[in-house]
Design a protein around this nucleic acid. Structure first.
Ligand SMILES: NC(=O)c1ccc[n+]([C@@H]2O[C@H](COP(=O)([O-])OP(=O)(O)OC[C@H]3O[C@@H](n4cnc5c(N)ncnc54)[C@H](O)[C@@H]3O)[C@@H](O)[C@H]2O)c1
Ligand SMILES: NC(=O)c1ccc[n+]([C@@H]2O[C@H](COP(=O)([O-])OP(=O)(O)OC[C@H]3O[C@@H](n4cnc5c(N)ncnc54)[C@H](O)[C@@H]3O)[C@@H](O)[C@H]2O)c1
Lengths: 214, 214
DNA sequence: GTCACACTGTGAATTCTTTCACATACTATA
DNA sequence: TATAGTATGTGAAAGAATTCACAGTGTGAC
């Protein structure tokens, strides 16, 4: 399987979503420059990204939407689907559960955990909420490989360690603290404060340098 | 004012948060390699990043935590504070309002908007919720420069256009669609589906390439 | 059947980012 | 006051990511 950088992979995920929308509209073929326009990039970059999934475009007709979705799927998805866990069923955690509920069949939230007794043993957005003591057991039983962390910042490191001990190898972290984990665990941070400060800064200094202009 | 790349700026924001925490713990000085360890980077990168704010370290003592926070603030923040707006007071929008409420004095959410009549004219997490028809007026009155978009995907483009028309120059977009705006508007997308797919992918293929190892 | 065209796939060039490595400078100590 | 030692600031090198640019190719027109 070819190596892809993180950015590369992110864009493949984006292309797939755009392609799914096109497919729903009945569009069967698409050119790299059209996809680029939708994704906010350049045609060359789209083509370069698609090399990872084994390019399958044809001149004069571009890419088959159906084939592309399929190829990206083969590349991105776990062969037999995958379940994620979420720890911290607060404001953000519940919003995320609502968002992912019933959305992606190949990657869904299969277990939630919270330390608050008033939240455990309830079903929230179609997903059972367990006490944190059950993390290890449930993660192992369900074969969960990926987890979302939405606990308060001071609990995040300990939560990450528990999850890793249970076998989780990928973390999506919403707590505003960098997590320390072993090199075999992949961490993606979503840092809204940083994002908002970036936006404020670049909005002040004469806007975008690189926006979808044409 | 020196030019900084997006990544650069993001890290400055992160450093500031880490430094604030240190300051609260009573720590007065810090070395680049310590900050690097906390932020998950290298010492050289920290020093390089800090060049943007005008470096002010001293050998043997490192950087003054207080001075650094101050310098980063001068660099990052609007001189007299700044108000942001949020459009879409749903699950995610409310979580974000709760999160930012009373947190950053220099960059706070000063107005919320929703199209749902049952939400407007209420105060949610200390912030007035207006009908969408008032976006233009309120944004102008409050001098809002930055907005957060948490409306459903199909409404996002129209919302962005309304905001830009009202004078907003920076958007933090949570809707899973790339926004088309003019080149003078800065857009930052937070795409949770992409993030989760990335985590799942890299978790599967032997974890991180580049995590905080040492 | 064959021609011309527009688009793909991809090496090479460019641009952007990170890391290296070292001269410089400050402090503590005696 | 002189000295030793360690951390900074930064040019230069290395490494990534993006863009350029063009050869190759399948398609539709005729
Ligand atoms: N709300 C947002 O929009 C937002 C934005 C950015 C970042 N964050 C971060 O996301 C995290 C959650 O934010 P929130 O607004 O949902 O907070 P919240 O207080 O609403 O929810 C936190 C939840 O975690 C649970 N919890 C606490 N300790 C736990 C533990 N050790 N194990 C399991 N569960 C535990 C609590 O019971 C609660 O249900 C925080 O770290 C916050 O900084 C939130
Ligand atoms: N919930 C999540 O965790 C999550 C995660 C990723 C992305 N998103 C995206 O964020 C957006 C909001 O998600 P949500 O879960 O909060 O949805 P939601 O349905 O709970 O909230 C949407 C809100 O927007 C309001 N709204 C609808 N049209 C509007 C308009 N034209 N102008 C102003 N307000 C309008 C609705 O009244 C509602 O209050 C969606 O685009 C979603 O795809 C959400």
């Amino acid at each position: 399987m070819p190596y892809v950088s993180e950015k590369n992979l992110g864009r493949l995920s984006l292309y797939r979503r755009l392609l799914n929308r096109l497919q729903a509209e009945g569009i069967r073929n698409i050119y790299s420059h059209e996809l680029a326009r939708m994704a906010g990039g350049t045609a060359a970059q789209v083509r370069r990204d698609l090399m990872a999934v084994g390019s399958l475009g044809s001149p004069k007709r571009g890419y088959s939407v159906r084939e592309l979705i399929e190829s990206i799927g083969i590349f991105l998805d776990a062969p037999h689907g995958e379940g994620a866990a979420i720890v911290g069923v607060g404001n953000l955690g519940r919003a995320i559960m609502a968002y992912f509920a019933g959305r992606r069949p190949r990657l869904s939230i299969v277990a939630a955990f919270d330390s608050d007794p008033s939240k455990v043993n309830r079903v929230i957005h179609g997903c059972r909420c367990y006490p944190v003591e059950d993390i290890e057991r449930v993660v192992r039983e369900e074969g969960v490989n990926v987890a979302i962390i939405t606990v308060p910042a001071r609990e995040a490191q300990a939560t990450a360690e528990t999850l890793v001990r249970a076998g989780v190898r990928g973390l999506l972290n919403f707590a505003p603290v960098p997590l320390r984990v072993g090199p075999d665990v992949y961490v993606e941070d979503i840092d809204m404060t940083m994002a908002l400060e970036k936006v404020a800064y670049f909005a002040r200094r004469g806007g975008a340098v690189e926006e979808i202009t044409k």
